[in-house]
Design a protein around this nucleic acid. Structure first.
Lengths: 101, 101
DNA sequence: TCATCAATTAGATGGTTGTCGAAGTATCAA
DNA sequence: TTGATACTTCGACAACCATCTAATTGATGA
């Protein structure tokens, strides 16, 4: 785990729910999995090919993931790149652990 | 963490989704939190008082939590007791960690 | 400038789900 | 046996959400 991922992040109750709901959709889960395991930039186009999904639907899901704080986006010309926000994921895991065990 | 919680549990893709969806509702999250932190039996009646909730709605949520495998129930006369299934929660956390980081 | 490609937004639709009241089932005590 | 209590199931309703098509914005290259 890189140092950046160890920095603690404060998650509000609302963000906890946003994250939980973001993870509760199968497609979003798979998309996030892909972005997370890449550990670098994932272009939007990459996912369109991979998931047999409409651009509109993909855009919707990406917004959900970004609103939840699980990914960050950057524009690169006419493309969009996505980066996993590992700190937020770890903060969520820590929160689940401390709330539910 | 008790030994029982360390035993690994195999979670199917479907169960992953069931758990994620179970956690995605605020009320269910609070209910589970209460059951989990008790670390023993939590009577159904206990939650009715605590959460200002209709019996029907509570019953619905408990079924969701139980179907997801996050709690186990036992009938005690006319009461129902709930027990946290810590192993399942930990299996879910492990899964998130390995899938998403 | 114009055509093209990438992605977002708008609007519509169908399916899912959280909620409740009412009826049903099960248990216990008098 | 009767009544009360604890919970479940049923049926309905409203809100939410994933999905799509079509229209829009924005950037690139010819």
């Amino acid at each position: 785990m890189p140092d950046a991922a160890k920095q603690s992040v404060e998650l509000s109750e609302d963000q906890i729910q946003l994250i939980a709901r973001a993870l509760a959709d199968r497609r979003r889960y798979e998309i996030l999995k892909r972005i997370a395991t890449r550990n670098g930039a994932t272009p939007c186009s990459d996912m369109r090919e991979c998931f047999d999904i409409t651009p509109a639907t993909l855009s919707h899901h990406m917004k959900e993931l970004e609103t939840a704080g699980l990914v960050r986006s950057e524009k690169e010309g006419k493309f969009v790149l996505y980066f996993p926000q590992t700190r937020v994921l770890y903060a969520y895991l820590d929160r689940l652990k401390s709330d539910l065990s």
